[in-house]
Amino acid sequence: MIGSRAPGIVRPTGIRTTMLRGVLFAILGLFVLYYLLPLLVMIATSLKSLAEIRSGSLISLPRAVSFEAWPKAWDSACVGVRCAGLKPYLWNSVLMVGPAVLLSTMLGAVNGYTLAKWRFPGSETLFGLILFGAFIPFQVVLLPMARTLGVLNLAGTIPGLVLVHVIYGIPFTTLFFRNFFVTVSDGIMNAAKIDGAGFFRIFFQVVLPLAPSTIVVTVIWQFTQIWNDYLFGVAFTAGDSNPVTVALNNLVATSTGVKEYNVDMAAAIIAALPTLVVYIIAGNYFLRGLSAGAVKG
């Protein structure tokens, strides 16, 4: 038949495409290896004894795997004058992150819903002012926030740090939800209004169930930003109320005693595990939310 080709014959263009794809995957694999190399070094170092670290190269694999650094980093390493490991400070971060993520996400959802579907005179200006808060550097708000926490009697406490993260997170969460709710059909809203539904009933029963991907994107964003924050933690908490990032810095930067690099690396991995777990579990939903326009301008 004219225009047909014999079976089993591969066109040269197909061979070139396969070769280019293989080269691309190899280059991407090198980038992945380069990106993961610090993590691999951290894991390898945490599994070495202190004597082996001092005698071997930094990036070598452990000759004899040792887990002694991990329990010490968890419950007996000295953070300042308190030798209780990272365990109490990790719990502080959990107590901080949970309410902060929940409150900032819910407030952002309500704000985004209001600014997208219940517009009023000046709503665009208000949205611009809220969005402006996302571009204010952390350092600018330190003194005003410290003064506010002092007036509220929340200085140096975990609830005070929760309040700081909620306030600073509202511009981001409002942006995410507002950009998604703008894409929701007004016909759904009008039908609900005809049926007698009010502001909050439409929000909880009609609009919010349409936004699971946006919720996941917002939660992951807020969780990562709040958990990894160091500046607000060191500025607005003290002593036993420090989050895990501040405790990790105090453990690693200590200038007394023997420097235990394996304990430092184990502690760093423990502090980073929650964010890694969140991305592993919800990473697909995060990418889905991005592709659905959760953070599209």
Rank of each mutant, 00 (worst) to 15 (best):
V162T: 14
W91I: 13
A44S: 11
E68Q: 07
R201F: 05
G156P: 09
G80H: 02
A282E: 03
V32I: 15
T173H: 05
K117G: 02
T45P: 01
T157W: 05
L39R: 03
V217E: 05
S46N: 00
L163R: 01
V216F: 07
V216P: 07
V32E: 05
T45C: 04
T245C: 03
A51G: 09
L143D: 03
A211M: 04
P144R: 12
N249W: 13
L251A: 10
R16D: 14
T125C: 12
L152Y: 08
L290N: 13
T275S: 08
F204I: 02
G3F: 11
G293K: 11
A292C: 05
A294M: 04
G289V: 13
L273C: 03
R11S: 10
F176S: 01
L161K: 02
D240A: 15
A267V: 00
S4D: 15
E124A: 10
I2Q: 05
N242H: 05
F223M: 15
F176K: 02
A109S: 11
G160L: 12
T148H: 06
C83E: 11
Y35D: 01
S255T: 12
E68I: 04
T105I: 03
L103E: 04
G169T: 10
G233C: 08
Y279A: 11
P171N: 06
L161Q: 05
A247T: 03
L152M: 05
T218R: 07
D240S: 14
A294V: 06
N249E: 15
